[in-house]
Amino acid sequence: MLRMPKFKVLNPATVAEAVDAIQQVEGSRFIAGGTDINPNLKHRLLEPECLVALNGVEEIFGISQTEFGLRIGAMESLTNVETNTLIQQLAPGLASASRQVSGPQLRNMGTIGGNVMLDTRCKWYNQTYFWRKSLGFCLKKDGDVCHVIKGGSKCVAAASNDTAAALSTLQAELEFANAQGSTRIAIDKLWQADGIWNKKVGPHDLLVAIHLPAALLNQKGSYKKLRDRNSIDFPLLGIAARLKISDNIVDDCALCVVALQARPWPLDKASALLIGTTVGSDAFNEALKACCAIAAKQCRPMPNIPGDHAYRHAMVPVFIRRAILSCLD
């Protein structure tokens, strides 16, 4: 049995009420599907006095085509994202990544917004208070050392959100609201390389919607995920790919990796190699090899999450290849 810490819950009905509610008590947190924050509360990784529940805020639901492209309300469940025909057609890599998050019940509850805003993960951190106390606390919560990098002064807990990689390849724009108004941030600009809090917005910024630009929709996309079991498990490594192919030539390519370090990592140097090659040609095959090799050089898994990090490293080129080739199926 894992008890929650004591808190009160506010249930706003509008974005304005939500951004107001979150400021009423210092340290309050939003709760969407609760599938990340609730286990973390039970582990005493945070102890806010107040939670602001977003399930009643209608404005932040909905999946629709807009002038800009595609708008996905932050509160849409991962099940809705995965099964939505617009997303399946226009952003297949995102549908695939959503389908591979945790297990069915968690996807019914967990939201795409909560997935973007997911806390980073580490095998020394996602543990009960008792467990962490026995070992000695770490930088991310209650302590002053890192158990992953001895003598390290920076937390390297891993960004483990599957959909963030796919959203990066689609150059998603994130719409936030706070007491000052509303802002839009490109997803690749959201992150900072700090495992304690890996985002440039704060916990009081409300993610309203995710906007996918029309120019990158309706292309090939895939997400390949390394994990022990084919369900429930967080990624040990996740690779998203987007390919634009015209007349059998790779016009554009984007790759992004998660579950390595504190932030999702776009692999621009690697993906650029494929651009301009004809699918199936010798040049394409050579470029694919070089792309996998560069990615393997750039990606350095750390012993921060479960799974042998040397094995995770060895799987980088394998999963890059699979992600790209499955765009060509």
């Binding site: 709760i31 609760g34 599938t35 609730n38 286990p39 399930n55 019940q105 968690l106």
Partner: peptide, 10 residues
Amino acid sequence: MLSCLVLPST
């Protein structure tokens, strides 16, 4: 859904 992770007010 997993009732161990659901807040009743929601």
